[in-house]
């Protein structure tokens, strides 16, 4: 799962963004530079979630991300720079984070307490796959009853 995809996920139960924690493996897989795609993504991103995700995966691009996303009025200048062939540090960082950084193992935590597991690069966001640390024992008991 790339950090782009992470930015678009929500908790299926509470509809809140999910924080990446307990990362066990991250892959960096370089792909072709996509500045025009990245510019189209900027308005859609949850910027603070992206910054937090970059910290969670200990990316070396954290410092290249400004506190806030470029505003709509700044985008035309960025587009112009991209079309004239400039390499912008911001877009290099977004390329690395959104398109090349894959969380292979870890957890996605909802602010309400439950979390979802990312295993072998695929997050399991089925509502009943949520792990609720306080209720795990009782849920397991319920499943056993249901199965019998």
């Amino acid at each position: 799962m790339r950090l782009l995809t992470h930015n678009l996920l929500i908790c299926p139960v509470h509809k809140k963004p999910l924080a990446i924690r307990n990362v066990s493996a991250v892959d960096i897989i370089p792909v072709e530079y996509q500045p025009r795609f990245l510019l189209r993504m900027i308005p859609r991103l949850d910027w603070s979630l992206l910054r937090a995700a970059a910290v969670s995966v200990e990316s070396d691009c954290v410092d290249a991300l400004p506190e806030a996303a470029p505003s709509p009025s700044e985008l035309p200048a960025l587009e112009k720079a991209v079309e004239s062939g400039d390499r912008l540090p911001l877009l290099d960082a977004l390329q690395r984070l959104l398109l090349e950084t894959h969380v292979v193992g870890g957890q996605l935590h909802c602010e309400h307490g439950e979390f979802y597991v990312i295993a072998d690069g695929i997050p399991n966001l089925l509502a009943d796959a949520a792990v609720n640390p306080s209720e795990t024992a009782s849920e397991q008991a319920a499943c056993t009853t249901e199965g019998s």
Binding site: L8, L125, L126
Partner: peptide, 28 residues
């Protein structure tokens, strides 16, 4: 997982286990 084993990691495809759009922002 079957798909992931088959697809090249450089393809612009990510896979998510979820029901319909319940775990995704529907507006993007």
């Amino acid at each position: 997982y079957q798909a992931q084993r088959r697809l090249a990691a450089t393809l612009p495809i990510d896979l998510v286990c979820g029901s319909l759009m319940t775990a995704l922002r529907a507006d993007v």
